[in-house]
Design a binder for these strands. Structure first.
Lengths: 352, 352
DNA sequence: AGGTGGTACTACAACGTTATAGGAAGGGTG
DNA sequence: CACCCTTCCTATAACGTTGTAGTACCACCT
């Protein structure tokens, strides 16, 4: 690999001059500049990032911390990653993947890497608030943005969906369709779950409907979990609609309902949360609260970069809006359409 | 950030000694070793990777090249990424994400980064054989493994599913259920598509059934594309089963069939390819050819590391086996079960 | 002639490591 | 007592950049 010296020799100038050309010093006349560019091009010169980082004491590296195969929210991650990448493109920062595998403790090794590679910032997603990796991020002192993990520090904040509002919108939609007994399949996890429950209760209380614990069951965000939770609810009481804190759990609930001989959406309306790919492919297509992973990624990256470049003094936390995607799983009514102004009505039909 | 010098001062030894301790030179007595470790721990010392890389002339960095939002095969990518990460864990190599955005040509910037960061190897996925990024990889001279892109060079090879065999297995399954008129929804893309078509034709010819172009339509790997292709086939002829080159297209076909009033699987059997998440959630659950993204990632990473560490002279190309996942979309028959030995029968039921 | 100012460069000391060569004790051998 | 091993440690020169300070040269003004 050619070095600055090789370019200097070829161009007939000193190493300093070449460096100055590449770093945009302006006391270099055009002729010299041309000579240097020419020589660099001919040698296929690429500045050595390590040498550069060493002396400039900056790495221009961001770490993207994602959970290993055990982590939840898989379908979501790639969207966030793309958002981050898009926002970072053109800023000169690089993005290093740090897969924090929880089962074999190999994430400790990753934490060391953050330090050794002198990461300037971290973007992490999919970790619960009490997860050891979340703790390691805070303790590392590296500026960080957390996606869906509500943790703050002097150099750390978060980006998440407006879960409360999203859940409330879903329940309001069911209310607008005339439902009064709305079951809720609660998810077991971080603070986000609590907020979705808050949204459920908020919408009910707005409508003057008392909260009924009989209608609520907790599950583990999986499809079988949703199936079982639905079963437990049905063994106690018969609601007319069910809202699940994730699409996967909603799928489980749908299966359970079908196994019990109920027709969807006629006998029971179902709403999910996330808008994963599969939501638009199931039958009936699932009405759900869409999360914008790409926007969350963009927002996280933008805030982090603003902080690193000194444009803001402290990274701020942000709520990203959600969107209720109305499909067939709770039926249609002209009433719902008029009330749900600003909401998106989307069809899965693919006719010509 | 503390340096080797700080540690040396604290431990009362020279810089060289500290370096030797960390690099496992063996002519250091245990007492000194202890002193150094102690000092490093107290100072929270982390060796500067840039300085180390600079002098050792190695980066220990691998680039993971993925397409931007425009790229296909999204649901697949995270599995491959996890496989790569798992295989790399513990080898001391780092993984840098390189999102090659095609629309704004910002991928050229990424190519520069490969050189500047002195990446030792690349793993790329989701690019067609004639994609500019694929070309850039070959031209870069950096050892690379391509996932699902059939391109070779002295330091480049590929990993892909055994698409021909996978497609053939799917068609053989349909044949074993008694189907004789099997439609095929062909995908438009790289060499992979051709191989799936080959598999379709292979299985037919094994059964002595002539290839009928009337039964084949091409689509663009999307759900609407599958819908339209199915429509075109049905306007010409009525098959008893349809095999699609991707699950997404199979979903489109299913919707089209339903819109035409056909019952699945009774009136028409459907098989897909990929086994994306949604395949097990649709009704009827889709029988499909599973691809093992994680294994492909692992294989790519392992081969690349073997080559970089000199354990092999040339990276070799590999076919990863597929697996026919039998669900409800083509019905059950005792015959099929006995014939499809070694194949997996999987149920989507989530009962307690 | 001497001073001032600008232009177009260059020399050199960092940055934090590693690797090579070498040196100072201490102990055994002839 | 001179010699040679070990054992343990250190000095020093890289690695490829950047940034600061400085120099050489020429032109212009008084």
């Amino acid at each position: 690999m050619p070095t600055l010296r090789d370019v200097a020799r070829k161009a007939g100038v000193s190493v300093s001059t070449v460096s100055h050309v590449f770093n945009g010093y302006r006391d270099i006349p055009v002729v010299t500049r041309k000579k240097v560019w020419e020589a660099a091009r001919e040698l296929d010169y690429h500045p050595n990032a390590f040498a550069r980082n060493l002396v400039s004491r900056r790495s221009h590296l961001l770490g993207l911390v994602v959970p290993g195969r055990a982590g939840m929210r898989h379908p979501f991650l790639y969207a966030v990653i793309c958002g981050v990448a898009e926002e970072i493109a053109g800023t000169g920062f690089g993005l290093t993947l740090s897969v924090a595998e929880e089962v074999d403790h190999s994430w400790r090794e990753e934490v060391n890497r953050w330090k050794e590679q002198r990461f300037e910032g971290l973007i992490a997603m999919g970790f619960a608030e009490d997860h050891p990796v979340a703790k390691a991020i805070i303790e590392s002192g590296i500026p960080a943005m957390l996606v869906d993990t509500i943790l703050e520090g002097p150099r750390v904040s978060w980006v998440k969906s407006n879960d409360t509002e999203g859940a409330a919108a879903a329940v309001r939609h069911l209310l607008s369709l005339g439902h009064r007994r709305i079951a809720y399949i609660h998810g077991l996890g971080g603070q986000i779950c609590q907020e979705r429950l808050d949204g459920y209760r908020l919408a009910l209380s707005e409508a003057g409907i008392p909260f009924d614990p009989q209608l609520v069951e907790v599950a583990d965000f999986t499809k079988p979990g949703g199936y079982k939770a639905m079963n437990r609810i049905l063994s106690r009481t018969i609601p007319t609609a069910v809202f699940a804190a994730s699409d996967m759990m909603a799928f489980g609930a749908m299966e359970c309902l079908r196994d019990r001989g109920l027709r969807l959406p006629d006998d029971m309306a179902v709403v999910g949360f996330d808008d994963i790919d599969a939501a638009s492919h199931v039958t009936p297509a699932l009405t759900t609260v869409r999360q914008f992973g790409d926007r969350m990624g963009r927002e996280a990256a933008r805030t982090l970069l603003d902080f690193l470049d000194g444009r803001i003094d402290k990274p701020h936390s942000t709520l990203v809006r959600t969107e209720l995607v109305i499909r067939r799983s709770c039926g249609y009514s002209s009433k719902s359409r008029s009330i749900a102004s600003g909401l998106s009505v989307q069809d899965t039909a693919a006719a010509e």
